[in-house]
């Protein structure tokens, strides 16, 4: 998925209750969120999970950056609803609810669209809350305690550090090329911008590799870490509660065959049409806006 502007997500420094929770319970929450979200088709559960994540965001004091970062789902969410109303990703037969010229809208699509959207929103919010309230170093220290190979851990941590460095580099190179008369957008700009960024980065890596070499990277033996992460008893209680809740929700969902509550969602044809028109227009509006931007002289 393409990204607009700077990458938004990273640690929001703070000293909230959530910031002080050990990274492992938080990682468990994210995993459980994903598992439960994909097991259930119950929109009450899904949007409840999203609300809980939002509540955690408020507790963590990161609600503003959280909502800003969650904005990336608007284009995909609106497109998802519009497409699902036209062709539900569930087994036929579908119940037709409205006809709009050549386009048929189905009742099942509205419910299933909301299920898919709920999954994405719930998982995204929870993951963002955890990322925003966990120091990356703590996360990687925890991962290495969990016996994740240290090379893998190192590569992941280094990637996260490199992204902002490269972004800055891209900005510098694009400005330098523009000052030499390069076109600022379009395909002609691809090679003059990509090649220097990539080649510069890869050449710089050789230095980094020598530096790692000189510090004995890859040598056998016990590795120690400067950062120490300690959990409180309450952190583990939170993890156990989360596991119990997830097990309960997961079991009920499986026993009830997805636990769909589509019968609760009774919609008038006019509502379905309105949802379709609004989501399709929001989506097309965003695309049109992006197109206009791309034709505007930069």
């Amino acid at each position: 998925m393409s990204m607009q502007g700077a990458l938004p997500v990273s640690l929001i420094p703070g000293d909230s209750v959530l910031h002080r929770v050990h990274p492992l319970p938080k990682m468990i929450w994210v995993v459980l969120y994903v598992v439960v979200a994909f097991m259930t088709q119950n929109i009450i559960v899904l949007y409840g999970m999203a609300l809980l994540a939002l509540l955690l965001g408020i507790i963590g004091g990161v609600v503003k950056p959280l909502l800003k970062a969650a904005f990336i789902i608007v284009p995909i969410g609106s497109s998802l609803l519009a497409l699902q109303l036209m062709a539900p990703a569930v087994e036929q037969p579908w119940t037709q609810i409205a006809q709009l010229g050549p386009i048929t809208l189905y009742e099942d699509g509205l419910y299933y669209g909301l299920v898919l959207l709920g999954r994405i929103v719930a998982c995204l919010l929870m993951a963002l809350v955890v990322v925003m309230t966990t120091h990356p170093s703590d996360l990687f220290t925890t991962l290495s305690k969990l016996k994740v190979p240290y090379t893998l851990n190192f590569m992941m941590a280094m990637t996260l550090q490199l992204i902002p460095v490269f972004q800055r580099e891209v900005g510098i190179i694009l400005s330098a090329q523009k000052s030499r008369g390069m076109k600022g957008n379009g395909f002609q700009a691809v090679l003059p911008s990509f090649v220097p960024v990539f080649v510069g980065a890869i050449e710089r890596v050789q230095q980094l590799s020598i530096s790692l070499e000189s510090r004995g990277f890859g040598s056998a033996g016990h590795k120690t870490s400067y950062r120490q992460v300690r959990g409180k008893a309450s952190d583990w209680v939170l993890a156990v509660i989360a596991i119990a809740a997830a097990a309960l929700l997961g079991t009920v969902s499986i026993m009830r065959g997805g636990w769909s509550v589509s019968e609760l969602l009774v919609v008038e044809p006019a509502t379905a049409v309105a949802v379709w028109v609004v989501s399709a227009s929001v989506f097309l509006g965003i695309i049109a806006f992006a197109l206009i931007l791309s034709f505007r002289k930069s």
Partner: peptide
Amino acid sequence: VTLIPVSVALNIVGGYIASAL
């Protein structure tokens, strides 16, 4: 071990360049 994170970061930044261009 250092080339891999660079490639990963370039994948992610590549998307960013594409949208910048």
